[in-house]
Design a binder for these strands. Structure first.
Lengths: 168, 168
DNA sequence: ATAAACTTTCATTATTTTTTGAAAGTTTAA
DNA sequence: TTAAACTTTCAAAAAATAATGAAAGTTTAT
């Protein structure tokens, strides 16, 4: 396989994975492109390579910056803005974990906790099932949450080292 | 808050979380409804409660069965089919982890491994960056994969116990 | 001050995903 | 065997999401 072909395949694969996990395909593709680019790229580079419009490129890059995955770079004596991605996989994972936790998990946790406090008739099967199911989900969600918090703070080697020491 | 209101809020919240993570909202809502129902429900019950069409209910239930989250139940002397969900949060998490791994992670891992073997000119910055980025992602994905495999096999208390012993 | 270079916005259009509902299919009891 | 009870399918419609591109906005050099 040629490098050019491999790059396309990576961009495509990363885009597909993103879309399956609720991240817009184009955004994941732009991220993939920046991940394998040694140099920072301009909006035009990205538009051309991925055949997307200027508006789309602009908004997608802004989103990626919002996710903490991409940064702007100013080159001395140039008007254009350049964009580059952090290439460290652990940083990427932590960043995504942190953002999705904040945006999606934390609000759900808040609701689950509220709902868990509901008082009612312990004789009512509806109430009992509601209570029990919620308690189980709530406990699990709490554990996931704690693990994510640890992960977000941790160094990669320590984190996996710790996990695999037990799961060997 | 009333039980009825709390139920609606749970169904809505579960549906939103699903849609943010690439699971169709209706499917997550049907799952939520079954999670808090002490009795198995019929297609009609679900159609009415969630205001969805027969076709939608039928296909969604089939999907949920495909995910291993819901089962059919036959009641003696009745023609209708009843559906009920496993209410154990750890079973649910394991089941979802297993299915998403199989459907989404494994195929990506396969491609990443292929792409990682690419040979080329070590002097070419494009090639070097491609190689390095891919190696990092590949290693991380491998670790995630191993952890998921452990989780899928594990008992809940052992799994979290092991993790929190280290992350205390 | 102004005009070229560049970026951002957002109403409109296109694409993708989900839902509907009626018809076709299946099962069961008599 | 047949007809009622129930389930499944799938083409078409609706809804949700994403992309376009031209116009408006901003910045910088002169």
């Amino acid at each position: 396989m040629e490098l050019a072909e491999a790059k396309l395949k990576f961009i495509e694969t990363w885009g597909k994975l993103g879309s399956e996990w609720g991240i817009n395909r184009t955004m994941a593709q732009v991220h993939a492109l920046l991940l394998i680019s040694p140099e920072a790229l301009t909006t035009e580079d990205i538009m051309e390579t991925l055949s997307i419009s200027r508006g789309n490129a602009n908004m997608t890059l802004r989103d990626l910056i919002g996710w903490g995955l991409v940064e702007k770079q100013h080159k001395a004596g140039e008007r254009k803005e350049y964009f580059f991605a952090d290439k460290d996989a652990w940083n990427i994972a932590r960043q995504v974990a942190q953002e999705r936790k904040k945006r999606e998990l934390d609000p759900v946790l808040k609701v689950l906790n509220e709902l868990s406090t509901l008082k009612g008739d312990e004789k009512d099967p509806d109430f009992k099932t509601f209570k029990t199911s919620l308690a189980g989900i709530n406990k699990l969600a709490g554990n996931v949450n704690k693990t994510l918090e640890t992960m977000i703070k941790a160094e990669e080697s320590w984190f996996w080292g710790s996990i695999f020491k037990l799961f060997k």
